[in-house]
Design a protein around this nucleic acid. Structure first.
Lengths: 222, 222
DNA sequence: CGCCCTATTGAGGGAGATCAACTCGGGTGG
DNA sequence: CCACCCGAGTTGATCTCCCTCAATAGGGCG
């Protein structure tokens, strides 16, 4: 796996080195990069030189304990921004879930813009606030909800983020889902199977789920 | 319990209605209020007309499921700010853990300042970022750590926030701690007792804990 | 078509929850 | 000043939900 630092020193790997205006903030521009499935975008403790905007594909951010236990902090889909840090270094790792096209924006440029323009700083604040609200929901989920409630909440969350609100397609593996929900793969699998038996969902394939009874799922979420 | 709205309409309850300059931001000022132990500061879904800075005392923020399961989102101590929201309404409830003196600042004034001044907006961004980093740690804790690891992490967190780094005093009850760590009161109690037996901590009283072996505790945290 | 990785299913065990009893300590009133 | 009282905390016994370990099944890509 290649680190951002390593990649940044290899201009040959940058398909579009031409700066792209972004966020409508003058002076803040990015360049595009491709990442393969499971490739590292950045690692924990690496210098946070960039922030990232997904053009296409999906990304997971996560942290790992010394013994390998992993907690997925978030999933990021096309159009979303991730990797903004307060300090010098990243506090999570990020990996491509699928092949990705990602826009990299120099964080120094963003910080400069934020110090100069209230609008830019307000935009940053808003971004963090939205993420914070999501993490608060996730705390409730991880601290107090049962396995069935967690999986139901996850399906509804993904449904809300996708194009259709009955067809959910999941770019991530069962293992990613489990590590996001604080469960094991087996429990996630069993719970999905149970939902299918109950007629609440259907699974035409592992990565595609149909919500057959949204209300039942919402009731399940608690 | 009295809501902020109710209280705000009773000037008699406001000991210091005289505006206090705060955050060094012109035009942003607050007034002080007292809250008793277990009194509600604000409730979930209430309008977020104020943000709050604790002069003295401690506050818990939390969310509750319909069946009563509670997740404590955070503990806030003297000097800290809480209750800043992105939207119109609070997404948590807040209650005084001890008798409190709290400074209330109109959120409209803060928002206005943030839109006008990059410095103010940047300050807000920073505040949210710090909170976000804490919640990421907490996600790892809630999703993947054992009871002993959670309690150890909690003690070290509180030690880091207190004046002394070996004497931890806990304003909150065992129940608050349990709901913060995603455990039950019984498990928290048992774990503390076990730490005491192992000589890692001592408990001169329920609300005072001595860290006798910080390294062992750090190892316990994983 | 076959291989390999991911997902599913099954059996059994364990960490923490639940239910219940008891103890402690701080505040109050006699 | 001390005894009582009540809520908070601790301890014990049992249960259960989810984890662990293991084997099987499926499906996507060469």
């Amino acid at each position: 796996m290649q680190t951002v630092q390593a990649i940044a020193n290899i201009p040959a790997r940058v398909p579009s080195a031409k700066p792209v205006e972004i966020f409508g903030i003058p002076g803040v521009s990015g360049f595009s990069m491709r990442f393969e499935r499971n490739e590292e975008v950045f690692g924990e403790q690496e210098e946070a030189d960039f922030l990232y905007k997904i053009v296409s594909g999906a990304v997971r951010t996560f942290r790992v304990l010394s013994d390998g236990r992993r907690q997925v902090v978030g999933f990021h889909l096309a159009g979303e921004v991730f990797g903004i840090e307060r300090g010098e270094r990243h506090r999570c790792s990020a990996e491509a879930i699928t092949d990705c096209q990602i826009l990299l924006i120099r964080s120094s440029a963003v910080e400069k813009a934020a110090r100069a323009s209230a609008e830019a700083a307000y935009w940053l604040w808003d971004l963090k606030s939205v993420e914070l609200e999501r993490l608060q929901d996730q705390m409730m989920l991880l601290g107090r909800k049962t396995a069935a409630e967690r999986v139901a909440a996850f399906l509804l969350e993904m449904a809300g983020r996708g194009a259709s609100d009955t067809v959910v397609d999941l770019p991530m593996s069962r293992c990613d889902i489990a590590d996001y929900l604080g469960l094991t793969v087996e429990t996630v699998s069993r719970t999905l199977t149970q939902f299918q038996r109950d007629g609440v969902i259907a699974m035409p394939s592992h990565r595609h789920i149909l919500l057959r009874n949204r209300d039942a799922l919402a009731r399940e979420e608690a």
